[in-house]
Design a protein around this nucleic acid. Structure first.
Lengths: 342, 342
DNA sequence: AAAGGGTCCGAAAAGCTTTTCGGTCATTGC
DNA sequence: GCAATGACCGAAAAGCTTTTCGGACCCTTT
């Protein structure tokens, strides 16, 4: 493939260059390229050819300067390394990229100073809006700076109720999980969760309890809060089996925890799903599909959450929009670990 | 915290506003804020206060338009969902963000059309440079468009030898892994790898072979190529134990494969690391630390790779720079699965 | 043949910052 | 007291695109 060698130093062609080559004024060239009226078809064609020949691409800086709108947004994450920012970011990038919007990515690394620095940088670049992605579902303080563009908080809602936040519906996730287990014929359901400090853990437990109540069932034992780790899942499952040998389903706070629970069940000779069904949250592919049997999990639809945040930001940019907390629904992804006992 | 309510619609303050408030000309205001000479300290102070009062932040668009340099770079990934883009991206973001550079993030999702579209958008935004992050270490075709700014290829090198590429040193990674196993007293070492189509798999195997040769050892069995999955690790380990019962170390093509291998070893009653040492690549935290015992792994230093790519791009922006393929070194992270047998 | 209308093109301004260069004022030296 | 020097400030241009408005030209109609 004979690629044109990149002409370094050859500054990019401007509209003037195109106009000169086409033998028209810059005004006419602009109108021709932007499909405006009052340009003779023949002239337009000449301009188009000239533009193609010079591989002209209009300078977005100048355009943004004039229009007062840049077609850029800032995506401010507090923890890129974490598991949850990435899909949200992908969804947002997807929604924006499909349009004409480019995304500035910033990672504050959980540091408030860095966050302010990034916000300032984004504002000086005149972004049209901002999406702030939290690292957990716990509410976070709103941006410290006065920001004159719309802001949407994703995953972690803002503590300020007047801000617009898009969060996953963890309560409903818990409810759907238990409903699935009940639909699989399970009645003795235990819940091994993660860190109690996370509202995600508490909300899922609350949703699970609601579903149990609705079915007239009781949770087996207490909700076992611990850590978001395989090791905790293994340990907690051991204790659970000691105390409640007749458990027939374990709802786990995350796929990591579920992996640990699966390990212990296997070691104790309990078959999954025949004897005990196991279910996780997050639908983390590498963990869920690598498990034996593959793990049924609740997908929080984070990519959709990112898209929803992007859409909300669009609307807020175009018009002052009602502010509130919106939730995104989740879905159960059924795999081998909960095959129906019915 | 009494946050200033975001004054939506209040267009951002310009330098003229500051100058007017301070009672000076825009030229003086500019010089005062940028620390230029020939401004009376008292005047400078007045300007600074006016700027603070209006929370003025200079319009980067206008600045970039004038300077011919925007202080932005494009980060073009082909597969954001993959495991490897993210740390590279973090490293790059880190290196740039520390300076005054902002990063445009684009995900082409492995689609050439989308890639071209993104490149065009980035060029029209006048980025100062481009980092192209591949989804595997296999060489990829160079960008289809003529690009008049520097480009650095990260992870996947460009097929064009004149391009600048930064890649992990998989050969050396394989060598270091085997050297570690030998240092642990192992002599009967097998290698269960991933997909043969990946140069990463082949390079690591080549490095491992080189280290074995240097130590006068032979690989136990053949390199077992398969898939980057736990299931493959489980299956391959079963076959390995059947054929080569006296193996005392398994080098795995990835942490995922290693997890599967650990599973099978446990089921077959082989103790790790006493009977068999196990080692992976990638140092994927959630897999390596969740394993029992925790998994020794080779970290490819991808974040450092991202930083190196950013630095290389910096240099290429400042001056036409020597083009070539550079490699980034890896490191062994020792955990329980290879405790010394000596 | 002149006027009117329509079609098309071009000049100019706006958007914001930085830099250069010229101008003003005060101070100092003779 | 005058000239020269230095310190400080302001006008203006450059960077690129889009839009508005006025002008030029051609064709038609009376």
């Amino acid at each position: 493939m004979a690629r044109t060698p990149a002409p370094r130093g050859t500054r990019a062609a401007t509209l003037s260059d195109v106009a000169r080559l086409a033998g028209v004024s810059v005004a006419t060239a602009s109108k021709a390229l932007n499909g405006r009226n009052h340009v003779h078809p023949q002239t337009r064609e000449r301009v188009m050819q000239a533009a193609a020949q010079l591989s002209f691409s209009p300078n977005s800086l100048a355009r943004g300067l004039l229009a007062g709108r840049t077609g850029t947004v800032g995506l401010l994450t507090s923890d890129l390394v974490g598991r949850f920012s990435l899909p949200i970011l992908m969804g947002a990038e997807d929604a924006f990229g499909a349009g004409q919007v480019s995304v500035f990515l910033c990672d504050a690394r959980g540091d408030a100073i860095r966050e302010r620095h990034h916000v300032q940088a984004l504002l000086s670049r005149r972004v049209d809006g901002l999406i702030v992605v939290g690292s957990s579902t716990n509410p976070r303080p709103p941006l410290a700076d006065a920001v004159d563009v719309p802001v949407v908080y994703a995953y972690a809602p803002s503590e300020a109720p007047e801000d617009l936040s898009i969060v996953p519906d963890n309560v409903n996730a818990g409810r759907m999980a238990v409903e699935h287990l009940i639909a699989c014929g399970r009645t003795r359901i235990a819940h091994i969760s993660g860190d109690r400090e996370y509202s995600a853990a508490r909300d899922r437990a609350a949703g699970a309890q609601a579903a149990l109540d609705a079915a007239g069932l009781e949770l087996v034992g207490e909700v076992a809060y611990g850590a978001w780790e395989e090791g905790w899942g293994r340990a907690a499952a051991g204790m659970l089996l000691d105390r409640e040998p007749d458990v027939d389903a374990v709802l786990c706070g995350s796929d990591q925890v579920a992996r640990g629970v699966l390990d212990t069940l296997r070691e104790r000779g309990r078959r999954v799903p025949e004897d005990v069904a196991v279910m996780g949250f997050d639908n983390w592919d590498v963990l869920a599909t690598g498990a034996r049997p593959q793990l049924t999990s609740v997908d929080m639809n984070l990519e959709e959450l990112g898209r929803a945040a992007a859409r909300a930001l669009f609307e807020a940019i175009d018009a002052e929009h009602g502010r509130a907390v919106h939730t995104v629904q989740c879905r159960v992804v059924v795999r081998g670990s909960t095959a129906s006992a019915g």
